[in-house]
Amino acid sequence: MLEARNLSAGYPGRAVLAGVSLAAQPGRVLALLGPNGCGKSTLLRTMAGLLPPLGGEVLLDGRRDYSPRQAAQRVAYLPQSRTAPNITVRRLVLHGRFPYLSYPRRYGREDYEAVDRALAAADALDLADRPLPELSGGQRQKAYLAMALAQETEAILMDEPTTFLDIRHQLEVLALVRRLAEEGRGVVLALHDLCLALTAADDVAVLGEGRLLALGGPEAVYQSKVLERVMGVRLDRSEGPGGRRYFCQLPEEG
């Protein structure tokens, strides 16, 4: 599956991250955490092949010689900023099948079936014939998620999929992420909400100071106090009927 090995990411002359090694694991959700500007998006974009690595490599099944098209059949990427072209949701989702098209660019029966599956999985069937610009933020998010699902990739990268969503939609997105992992896909997502990430992810990668500071299960990372240091908050934890929950607050002075 998708793996970053000793990866340096950033823009020419301005490295944001160096020496990062992590991988999407089948059946697991990996959350990237860290303060603003720590390079979560840059790392995802580099792993998605949108930015050339400054050093190290991005490997697919241990190989680095794959075309953008081959990568698009294996790895889906959901960017944070999305345009809303004036097309229907179904049409948008259909474009998720683009990596599988050969010339002459005609979508076939399989593609339409994959679209229906993806719409159902993303709970967006009722939106299928609505034009994108008419939708609310949460609905648009579902539409784009469905497009990524229609790509039918083993790995899915998501950049802040819960931003700008109300809490109900955030939880729905994370529930979908969980279902995707249960289907055996590897999900990597950048999140800014620590508490949500620690409860929803199987693994947590903490980015900061230009490198990967910690990688492990939520509890191990919580114990290590790295997150508290790099985010400048105090983290607490409680066991409740719904399972383990994490809380952030400002650290006490002194």
């Binding site: 953008p68 474009h95 497009m147």
Partner: peptide, 16 residues
């Protein structure tokens, strides 16, 4: 059609 989705999305779908 794919290009009109925006450059990020288009490239992530394998389009140059």
């Amino acid at each position: 059609d794919v290009l009109l989705l925006g450059e990020e999305t288009a490239r992530s779908l394998g389009l140059p």
